[in-house]
């Protein structure tokens, strides 16, 4: 599997993918920089009890939409690399199982998105320091707010990977992913079992970890269902 991943990383060279991985977190931090720059007095007033928590909260609100749209675009771009010249047949005529191919694609998105979230956390710290919020950084809260929405989004990575790989025309997976991301933004009043609500980390118990666990469990389940379907299909 390591060789599969090295090969996958080689294939995304010179694509816009790595740029996107940077652009996502940079965009969020940039917008927050403008937000705090323009409304500095007002926002520091609102969050005067804990400036860092205030900043992290603002960042994570923007990041959820970015993660959901980002993963939609990523999975689609990664699949397009194979669709473009119909490379699936050549790839799968190599001594590699379909399971490895599917897993490689899903894992690539998971890893790349992880890097984005890491950059987001680092960017938040840099922004907070620049805004002179002091060095008393609530690291645990920062890590929660940067990585929990990402983990709760695993079901979407699984579904979008499957859609992008099984459909040659990427309009459908892109539309489903983007509509889903927008639905997610308005899902705070949905029942807890609706997956679109999970990235918001809101639930009746006020336990963000529950949303993450649901995301992990259903994400892995959907990955296996997608994998099963991919294995069953003839290669195009």
């Amino acid at each position: 599997m390591a060789r599969v991943m090295v090969s996958e990383f080689l294939k995304i060279r010179r694509k816009m993918i790595l740029f996107l991985i940077l652009l996502g977190p940079m965009g969020v931090i940039g917008l927050e920089a403008v937000n705090f720059g323009v409304r500095y007095d007002w926002l520091t007033g609102v969050y005067k009890d804990d400036l860092w928590r205030g900043l992290i909260g603002e960042v994570s609100m923007l990041s959820i939409l970015t993660i959901l749209i980002g993963l939609t675009i990523l999975t689609s771009m990664i699949a397009t690399i194979e669709h473009q010249t119909n490379a699936w047949k050549q790839l799968l005529a190599l001594p590699i199982s379909k399971t490895q191919v599917f897993t490689g694609k899903a894992l690539l998105t998971v890893l790349l998105l992880f890097v984005s979230c890491l950059l987001l956390a680092i960017g938040t710290i840099v922004l907070g320091l620049l805004l002179k919020f002091g060095t008393d950084i609530p690291f645990l809260y920062l890590i929660e707010m940067c990585f929990f929405p990402y983990l709760a989004s695993l079901p979407f990575i699984a579904v979008q990977t499957w859609l992008a790989i099984t459909m040659k025309n990427q309009a459908v997976p892109l539309m489903i992913g983007i509509v889903g991301a927008i639905v997610s933004m308005y899902s705070m009043n949905f029942p807890d079992w609706v997956p679109w609500k999970w990235p918001l980390l809101l639930n009746d118990w006020d336990m963000p970890v529950y949303s993450v666990l649901a995301g992990l469990a259903i994400g892995i389940l959907l990955y296996f269902i997608g994998l099963l379907d991919f294995n069953r299909r003839d290669v195009k």
């Binding site: 490379a87 050549q90 790839l91």
Partner: peptide
């Protein structure tokens, strides 16, 4: 094998294309 028209990754060089396959072979 070579099935129908050739498959390749256009954004990669010939060497990188072969390297992507070599890793799996």
């Amino acid at each position: 094998s070579l099935v129908e028209y050739p498959s390749y990754y256009g954004h990669l060089t010939a060497y990188e294309n072969l390297e992507a396959a070599r890793l799996l072979l």
